[in-house]
Design a binder for these strands. Structure first.
Lengths: 138, 138
DNA sequence: TTATCTGAGACTATTTTAGTATCAGTTAAG
DNA sequence: CTTAACTGATACTAAAATAGTCTCAGATAA
């Protein structure tokens, strides 16, 4: 069971790169090289981050991506939500068709509270806090 | 992002059925009917639970499955581990080949502590506690 | 005008999860 | 002693999620 997929991990690292160069436009190629992420793949991720308003892009030579808002406003939970969807129960517990036991489902309440817990933790980690740690290690 | 897959959910429900009939051997067919789980699929799950020593089986007519140990000793975390593997980071953070940044990975420590938290929660839920809740709802 | 970039979309590959089908062997009960 | 109701094992297939690739049109800096 993985809490974080490669997608999310790549995206976080890409955002860390952008966060490391404030106000600059960084190309997908540079991100790919710095973090050893497949070039075409990171392009796709960056485009998705753009659609979700975390980054903005600039076309053409010298173009690339830059953070749209301050690192303190970007939470790990946001990134996870984009690439892995909402934290949720197994489907069976929501859809009556699949799980007719719903009202009796004893797992439900437990898991829901754990989910809220996990979400809270992920909300507490911001790009800013990660950038600070990164600097500390250099 | 799902914390619980169908596998695990089915397995929990199957174990709840067995727990509801202490000392009796319950056939896969009966479990399938009671919980509306595909028959062949639940057989597979029960066999796996047997391999992991959570249940024992008896062959032939009148046979079936029964819990091997007391419901108080069966933790949700055990079941999740069997069907979804250990709670772990995305691979990249463990394998150097994939993630050469490991030592600098700022996600690592955060996620590890969240994982331990989740594990602790899942360990706190036992088959016994779920059975009690079920009875309360009847 | 050319090299360097992004946008978009259509692919393919791999892995994980879910589900099925079959056959040999065991056992309870008529 | 035969039959119906079981499990064990294994080999499948199907579907969904994840990871990764390719290509082409258009923007822009030098």
């Amino acid at each position: 069971m993985k809490l974080i997929t490669k997608n999310t991990d790549y995206a976080v690292r890409a955002l860390l790169v952008l966060g490391g160069h404030p106000q600059e436009y960084i190309s997908a190629r540079q991100v790919a090289l710095e973090q050893l992420i497949p070039y075409q793949y990171v392009r796709k991720l960056l485009r998705k981050l753009m659609h979700y308003d975390l980054v903005v892009s600039r076309d053409g030579a010298g173009g690339g991506f830059t953070l749209k808002s301050s690192p303190s406003k970007i939470k790990l939970a946001d990134i996870i939500r984009i690439f892995q969807g909402d934290i949720q129960l197994s489907e069976c517990m929501f859809r009556k068709k699949i799980c007719p036991q719903r009202s009796r489902c004893v797992l439900r309440t437990h898991i829901m509270s754990i989910e809220r817990l996990v979400e809270k933790e992920f909300n507490g980690i911001t790009l800013e806090s990660m950038l600070k740690e990164l600097k500390g290690k250099k």
